[in-house]
């Protein structure tokens, strides 16, 4: 866990969850900020990725402003849950696929370029799994930012 992270890696996580520099040499800019060199920053990020702590350096999008998406849930017989999850894994439109403690036990987010594609994708999921997909689309968000500061202790 944390113990395997170097001080540089912790600081990178602390400073890089928002506003990653958009300029020709972002890793070099970060290196200056942290008082090391670019190669150290690049190696630190590569190692974070290799160890599975970093999914990617990338973007999250404002739900409702871009494309179409919805939270969805299914009631899956306990014995089938891995099989069904595996089938869902083949849909690149699905992210955030969690098993949760409830009768509705498989929860995921479906994203698509537009509403018709989203509807089609959900129908495909129902066909492939032979299960009903319940949709809980967002009405309004009050807080949407997973870039919270980690507690290191």
């Amino acid at each position: 866990m944390d113990k395997t992270l170097s001080p540089i890696q912790r600081r990178l996580i602390d400073v890089c969850q928002h506003n990653f520099p958009i300029e020709p040499d972002p890793y070099s800019t970060l290196a200056t900020k942290l008082g090391c060199d670019e190669a150290t920053v690049i190696d630190a990020f590569k190692d974070l990725k290799a160890k599975g702590y970093l999914a990617r350096i990338g973007a999250t999008y404002a739900t409702g402003r871009i494309g179409a998406s919805t939270l969805a849930a299914m009631e899956v017989p306990e014995a089938d849950i891995e099989k069904v999850a595996q089938k869902l894994g083949r849909f690149t439109e699905i992210n955030h696929n969690y098993e949760r403690e409830d009768k509705l036990n498989l929860w995921f987010v479906v994203t698509a370029a537009d509403q018709p594609t989203l509807t089609r994708t959900i129908r495909d999921i129902e066909i492939v799994t032979s299960l009903k997909v319940h949709r809980m689309p967002m009405v309004e968000h009050y807080r949407l930012d997973l870039g919270f500061a980690l507690q290191w202790n």
Binding site: K51, G52, T60, A62, L146
Partner: peptide, 28 residues
């Protein structure tokens, strides 16, 4: 590429650009 990214952020279509972590792996 940099201009297009700036524009997406300015328009609020990107709400966060940075390190996307795997919280479970990090102990959450």
């Amino acid at each position: 590429v940099m201009n297009a990214l700036h524009q997406l952020m300015q328009d609020g279509l990107i709400n966060r650009f940075g390190a996307i972590l795997r919280h479970r792996a990090l102990g959450y």
